[in-house]
Design a protein around this nucleic acid. Structure first.
Lengths: 149, 149
DNA sequence: ATATCTGCAAAGACTTTGCAACCTT
DNA sequence: AAGGTTGCAAAGTCTTTGCAGATAT
């Protein structure tokens, strides 16, 4: 079992005095992310890069996405098939997603109420350093018209 | 996902030769699901079965869960690590879990506030048939004492 | 010059499928 | 006996890691 639920604070601390380097690949990945409207998988992004003539290894794509997501510069969620989907953050505050389980379209939503609730509940139970996972799924206005399943 | 504390098995030993619906394996999987409080992965369920002395192949566990989920008798969601988690449908008491990321201990918490928030947010966005995934992680009172990291 | 970054190949983790033997009905 | 069920082994997917060579600063 892969353990992934680290606290948001568990950042990719870099060794002393180092800094992220700008490479052609890093740039290419960022560029593709910038012009993608919705959530895309690493594989889709990789394919898109190839199509644009950029030579970037799949491994590298994964690595950049991982870092970008850890540092909060892109959102990452799982779709129902288990793939991780990435998208450039559109707001810089903490938020959650309401995703259509049919077409994948998603909306960012604020979660003040949830944050408050989480903190409150945690305090009551005596827990500390509490983080949360909150995702909403439903049928978007378009897909909601169609008969379910 | 970390392992959630499974209650010690107090299986009412099923006398051999008891007639069960379907097969021994189907019954065993259903039994484990029935007494699990929260979401569990197929692999956790399989491990729990072994612990109870039930010989059920992992493949079979997956197949039963798949069917149960397709027929709507259990809920299935993906956790952040990509595993599918299953839970017996609980029409009455819907709750969430606050789990210690150090020792795995977990507490059930009510989520009225979250439900309301989810419904409200969904409605505003025009989404229908909205479900949610909410899990809280933190350090329990005991583990919180220890110096972090 | 050298700490990073790349990317191929291989490993890992979870889930699904092929198929012969087994068990219910 | 017939047909669904089981489970080992192997295949499939997506993602991560080992490592040697390439690269940015």
């Amino acid at each position: 079992m892969r353990v992934v639920n680290l606290p948001a604070s568990a950042s990719a601390g870099r060794p002393h005095g180092t800094r992220v380097r700008g490479t052609r690949q890093a740039e290419a990945v960022a560029a593709v992310l910038d012009r993608l409207p919705g959530f895309c998988s690493a594989q889709q992004i990789h394919a898109e890069l190839r199509e644009r003539g950029e030579q970037v290894g799949l491994t590298t794509v994964y690595r950049h996405l991982q870092v970008l997501s850890e540092t909060g510069r892109v959102d990452a969620i799982r779709d129902s098939s288990g793939e991780i989907l990435y998208r450039r953050c559109q707001t810089d505050t903490h938020h959650h997603h309401l995703t259509c389980r049919n077409c994948g379209r998603s909306v960012e939503v604020e979660g003040k109420a949830v944050e408050r609730w989480a903190d409150e509940v945690a305090q009551q139970a005596g827990f500390s350093e509490v983080g949360h996972t909150v995702e909403l799924f439903g049928l978007c206005p378009d897909c909601g018209q169609l008969p379910p399943r």
